[in-house]
Design a protein around this nucleic acid. Structure first.
Lengths: 180, 180
DNA sequence: TGCGATACCGGACAATGTGTTCGGGACGAT
DNA sequence: ATCGTCCCGAACACATTGTCCGGTATCGCA
């Protein structure tokens, strides 16, 4: 990729994440991103079709990184039981912690749909095999309940930062006693 | 209230709810509401400052109705144990069922923040005294978890209509085994 | 019934934000 | 050095919002 493209893209990302730490996603305009990135209007639109496309690209990058890694090969954090659900959940939270400030802008107020859509899709995939059956309750509902529970836990975290991923994970599983 | 005002307001509400059954809230414009209500532009803005104000007013009406009633005095549905949490939850679901089609427009996709904000506030109030303590887990997290669980249950319902309020309520409490 | 108050109308308006088009200039890769 | 690609900025059409106006219709009430 052309160095100019790379620099422009990075400038856009920097501007975007920087703005997300200050204001809600819905209230940020393309013009603000352009101004802070210090690029031409045309340039922005040659990289991203819309503001939403930028957000989607951003989500893609984060989640590809967070979910693609094999927890067993994780070097930075040490887990003894690397293959169970709790360890995976904690692992995800560790990665999200790096973006916690940005997330609060994306999740607070309005327009969390894009991020949550991405997140829920990935989580459903991850949790789908661990959902315990219970007679009389649809599998889909149970999966949705777990996935949403995790998402809302992360949202709660963005408003009550200061907890460690382990603590947050502990809260989550305490609220889902049948699930591990 | 002036008959003209009443008629206008009802026309706006009718147009709004009708549009909500077809499209997402975020995609509906004020102009669409005006056109379908068949009123003047000025008239709409003399009733509501913005589209969001209309939604808030709509939410107010619904939730005031749903939450203000004493379940014990409910005539249309018969509950044996009128004062426990499960009965209240089911009661709320009964009322929401009347608006289920509209809700799917308000909740699907984007901009569910207004509705969910209202709903969560009311639910937190309602559930606050029933949250069981658990050492090591903040009370706020537990309450949030229950409230969000209920909201997401309703959202799930809008996408899987056909279940009765009792069934939905049953699903919810099955997913919150420590909570009743 | 008639009168004053008030709500409606619709057309025009400024303001904001979006996304596109254009020619010209700068930079990168080779 | 040069060709292709990217960036620039200014201008544009478009959509939407929210406001202002004078004129008209309807309401509530005496």
């Amino acid at each position: 990729m052309d160095r100019r493209q790379r620099k422009t893209r990075e400038a856009i990302y920097r501007a975007f994440t920087s703005l997300m730490r200050e204001e809600d996603y819905a209230k940020v305009t393309v013009q603000q991103i352009i101004d802070r990135a210090d690029i031409g209007r045309t340039t922005f639109y040659s990289h991203f079709e819309t503001k939403d496309a930028l957000l989607k690209s951003f989500c893609s990058d984060i989640f590809d990184h967070v979910f693609s890694e094999d927890p067993g090969k994780e070097k930075t954090h040490d887990f003894s039981h690397v293959h169970d659900t709790k360890a995976r959940a904690t692992h995800i939270l560790y990665h999200l912690q790096e973006h916690i400030g940005v997330l609060s802008g994306i999740l607070s107020g309005e327009s969390d749909a894009v991020f949550m859509g991405f997140f829920k899709e990935k989580l459903a995939e991850l949790f789908s095999s661990s959902v315990p059956m219970e007679p009389g309750v649809p599998y889909e509902y149970r999966l949705n309940s777990i996935v949403c529970g995790f998402c809302e836990t992360v949202r709660w975290w963005t408003k009550h930062s200061g907890y460690t991923p382990e603590e947050i994970s502990g809260f989550f599983f305490a609220a889902m006693p049948y699930f591990d």
